[in-house]
Amino acid sequence: MARSVLITGGNRGIGLAVAQAFARQGDRVAVTHRGSGAPAGLLGVKCDVTDPPQVDAAFAEAEAAHGPVEVLVSNAGVTDDALLLRMPEERFTRVLDTNLTGAYRVCRRAVSGMLRRRWGRIVLVSSVAALSGTTGQANYAASKAGMVGLARSLARELGGRGITVNVVAPGLVMTDMARTVSAARRAEMLAGVPLGRHAEPDDVAGPVRWLASDEARYITGAVLPVDGGLGMGH
C-alpha cells in the first residue's frame, strides 16, 4: 500500500536517492528544499528546518497532497568546519540548529499525526562522525551524535504506539557535501574502509527504505552504520 513519505533535504544527494527509492516502490513522496525545487516525480515543498512556521507549512502542503505523513526521513543538514579555537559560537550553534534542532522540529510535527494512527516510521540520517568524531567538525559531529540520543529517547516514548525511530550513520558518501572535503582527507578516510571505496547515495537509500518497511517492524532505537566497515559499528 502506498504511504505518505516526507524527506527533509530530499532534493539532492542522499536525500534524493532516498526519495527516489521510496517513489520507485509506489509511495507518495514529498521532499523539502530551500528554493531549488524538486526533480520530476517528487512533490517539492519549500522549507528551512530552522524556521518552525516553514516546517509546519511544509507538512501542511505535503499532507494536503498525499495525506498524513506516515514515514519521515530527517536528512537535512549542513557543515561549517573549523578547528575549535577558530570556530565562533554562531558557527557551532548554526550547525546544531539545522542538523539537530531541525530534526527535533520535524519529528515533533510528524509525531502528532502518527500517534493518532498508532503507526509511523521515523529515520534520522546521522553520520559516522557522530560515533568517531572528526577533526575540525566538533559542531557537525556533536549535532549528529545528538540525533542518536534524540532517536533513542523517541523510540522509548513512542514504541507503545506503533512508531519506530531509527538512525542510519553513513560514512564517506560521494555527494556535493563530501566533495568539499579535501582529497587528502578523503584518502585518509578511505584508507580505513575495509570495503575500499566510498559510498554512493543509493548505498544509503536502501537501508533507510528497509528501516521504514514492515520487514524492520521490530527494530527501533537502532543505529545502523552504512560506512563500509569504517567504524565497525562504533
Rank of each mutant, 00 (worst) to 15 (best):
A76M: 09
H198T: 04
T220I: 06
S153I: 09
S127P: 10
S132F: 07
R28E: 01
L154V: 10
V226R: 00
R186N: 01
V95E: 03
A145R: 14
V181M: 13
G15C: 10
G15N: 07
H66R: 08
M232V: 08
V226Y: 00
G228H: 00
G102E: 00
I163S: 02
V5Y: 02
M232I: 01
K46E: 14
F59I: 10
F59Q: 07
E63V: 10
D227M: 01
R94M: 13
R34A: 12
L43S: 04
G162E: 03
G77K: 05
F22V: 06
F22G: 02
E61K: 14
V125C: 09
V78T: 15
L195S: 02
G26S: 06
Q25I: 14
S4Y: 09
N99G: 09
P170A: 06
L158A: 05
G35P: 10
P225I: 01
V5K: 04
L84H: 14
V95A: 08
S143G: 04
E61D: 14
F92G: 05
G229A: 09
D203W: 01
L96K: 09
R152E: 09
T93Q: 11
M87N: 10
G159Y: 09
K144E: 11
T134G: 12
D56A: 15
A64E: 13
R116D: 12
A178W: 02
P207V: 09
H66T: 05
V78D: 08
